[in-house]
């Protein structure tokens, strides 16, 4: 009997499959299709202190093997999430859920996290540090190790639940950001958020996205994500959640071999609403194929080649 379970920051997951924030809403649309309790957990829609309408449309553009989005963190705000979404979620999801939190100042993050930390249903808080810092000239928290660490320190000081920091790949040295977050008290790291990209409409000569640029996701980003998971997992001593273009059980195993303790699945949910259920169903057969009895045994299990300079 294949053992799919893993442990993420002290909480056991039946399997490492986690739908990524922004591709799964609060789970209700998927719960109409299948019993989402088969998931390890899921990371719900990125939540901010205030409700947000998000960016103007078009917000979606297609790319070879992927897509761009510039949704702009549309969400109903943390108070609505606690009053409406979490009670409704109880009717179809009975495992600890991952709360994804965004903010535009350290105070925003702390406010939102403090409210969510008090909710029993929530197992982990995933901090999205890719948003612009309004007090830092609009530069993303996640592009500066000190700014990212500042958010982590502020949140850790007022929360009890494990804090997983979701890193932006749009940096020169992602390991430096990961190490700064670990030092500031982060319980885990998740990566990668989307890669900044753009498309231009040849007929109108305007960017396809009304925001001009957006975040690339889908299979196109998988090798970049895998490389960053590998680098970060070999630098930090806290668990790493890998994501970026994962669409199959094979991709899951590759991410875990690179160093991921659990794996988030994003864009795949949008084109195939059964993607996560199917990956979970395929995992036992895939494990047999690669002679894996216990999935947690393969975390960071890839042996690197010796490098000659």
């Amino acid at each position: 009997m294949a053992d799919l379970s893993v442990e993420l920051c002290g909480i056991k997951l039946d399997n490492p499959v986690i739908p990524a924030s922004g591709t799964f809403g609060f789970g209700a649309e998927f719960a109409e299709l299948y019993d989402i309790n088969v998931l390890g957990t899921f990371s719900f829609k990125g939540t901010t202190r205030q409700p947000r309408f998000g960016n103007p449309t078009p917000r979606i553009a297609e790319c070879p093997a992927g897509m761009l989005n510039s949704v702009g963190l549309q969400n109903p705000g943390v108070e609505h999430v606690i009053a409406e979404e979490l009670p409704r979620m109880k009717t179809y999801f009975c495992k600890p859920v991952m709360a994804n939190v965004s903010g535009f100042s350290v105070e925003d993050y702390a406010y939102t996290c403090a409210l969510l930390d008090a909710q029993d249903q929530i197992g982990w808080i995933e901090l999205n540090v890719s948003c612009p810092n309004v007090h830092g000239g609009g530069m993303s928290f996640g592009t500066d190790p000190e700014a990212a660490a500042g958010v982590v320190r502020a949140v850790k000081a007022i929360t009890k639940k494990p804090i997983i920091v979701k890193l932006s790949p749009n940096v020169t040295d992602i390991v430096a950001v990961a190490l700064a977050c670990e030092k500031a008290g982060a319980d885990g790291i998740s990566l990668i958020n989307t890669l900044l990209g753009m498309r231009i409409d040849l007929k109108t000569r305007r960017p396809v996205l009304a925001n001009n640029t957006g975040g690339l996701s889908g299979p196109a980003v998988f090798p970049v994500a895998l490389r960053m998971v590998w680098q970060v997992a070999h630098a930090v001593d806290i668990p790493v959640v890998g994501m970026g273009g994962v669409s199959s059980a094979d991709d899951m195993i590759e991410m875990m071999l690179a160093g991921a303790t659990a794996v988030e699945v994003g864009a795949a949910n949008l084109v195939d609403p059964y993607a996560c259920r199917d990956i979970i169903n395929e995992l036992p057969e895939t494990m047999r194929k690669y002679k894996i009895e216990k999935l947690s045994d393969i975390i960071k299990g890839a042996n690197s080649w010796e490098k000659t300079l």
């Binding site: 922004g22 591709t23 799964f24 809403g25 649309e29 998927f30 829609k45 309408f53 998000g54 449309t57 078009p58 917000r59 979606i60 553009a61 897509m67 989005n69 949704v71 549309q74 396809v208 949910n269 949008l270 084109v271 609403p273």
Partner: peptide, 17 residues
């Protein structure tokens, strides 16, 4: 009409006012 990601309400790519 709008450019859509998923078509079933989870990506919130096609929001209107």
């Amino acid at each position: 009409e709008e450019r859509m990601g998923c078509g079933f309400g989870v990506c919130v790519g096609c929001t209107c006012k």
